[in-house]
């Protein structure tokens, strides 16, 4: 009788111990369940020192303490850019209020010749009034993008000199220390974008 009990009890205790350890390990491993490409370790990107839509200087380093999402596109773009921006608008709306206050969405133009800071301000405001549109002196904007490895190319369309511009497929997410943490695919669902942004925000809060 006692032997039976012991036989039962020991495996049971071992079993419980295994489960507890597994849960503890499991929780730790499951925590960063990002849908986006994770940058490991988080890396510093070259500084952005341009002009925000309100005419004030925009520096990436001034955003520290917030999770910053940077999208590089242009306003003459009728398909992908508004799609990406509405995804960000939708994701932003899904964030809990406390997280939303700690997230800043920024769109930097890939077409500074046409997109002045004023145009950028009007454009991003359509998707969410809190978003920041960034442009500046065209040469400086293009140099900044080049320092990030982004080289927008123009392709002409029509007879009146209008053109389209190539732009990155991914959005950049910086953590609260100002380090590049994620690269979000432009076609990720808003639900996943929101959950990724919240995870990055929580990383800085632990």
């Amino acid at each position: 009788m006692q032997r039976i009990l012991r036989r039962v009890r020991i495996p049971a205790l071992v079993g419980i111990a295994v489960i507890v350890v597994a849960l503890a390990l499991g929780c730790r491993e499951d925590a960063p369940a990002f849908a986006s490409a994770v940058v490991e370790p988080p890396s510093r990107m070259p500084e952005v020192n341009l002009v925000a839509g309100d005419g004030q200087p925009f520096r990436l380093s001034d955003q520290q303490g917030k999770v910053v999402v940077v999208y590089v596109g242009y306003t003459f773009c009728p398909d992908l850019c508004p799609l990406a921006m509405s995804t960000l608008g939708n994701a932003y709306d899904r964030l809990p209020a406390e997280v939303r206050d700690g997230v800043q969405v920024v769109m930097i133009t890939a077409d500074p010749a046409r997109d002045t800071p004023e145009v950028m301000a009007k454009y991003v405001n359509y998707f969410d009034p809190s978003f920041t549109g960034v442009s500046g002196d065209p040469a400086t904007v293009l140099e900044t993008l080049a320092s990030w490895g982004i080289h927008p190319e123009r392709s002409a369309t029509g007879a009146n000199g209008s053109y389209f511009v190539s732009h990155p497929t991914r959005m950049y997410v910086f953590n609260r220390d100002g380090l590049l943490r994620l690269q979000i695919a432009h076609d990720l669902e808003p639900e996943s974008v929101a959950s990724d942004l919240e995870l990055v925000w929580r990383e800085g809060n632990d």
């Binding site: 392709s155 369309t157 389209f164 497929t169």
Partner: peptide, 19 residues
């Protein structure tokens, strides 16, 4: 002003529209 038929192509890490 006008209407064009376009597609979107991915070139490495960049996207562009092509008529």
């Amino acid at each position: 002003g006008r209407v064009e038929l376009h597609t979107t192509v991915k070139e490495g890490e960049m996207m562009r529209m092509v008529q």
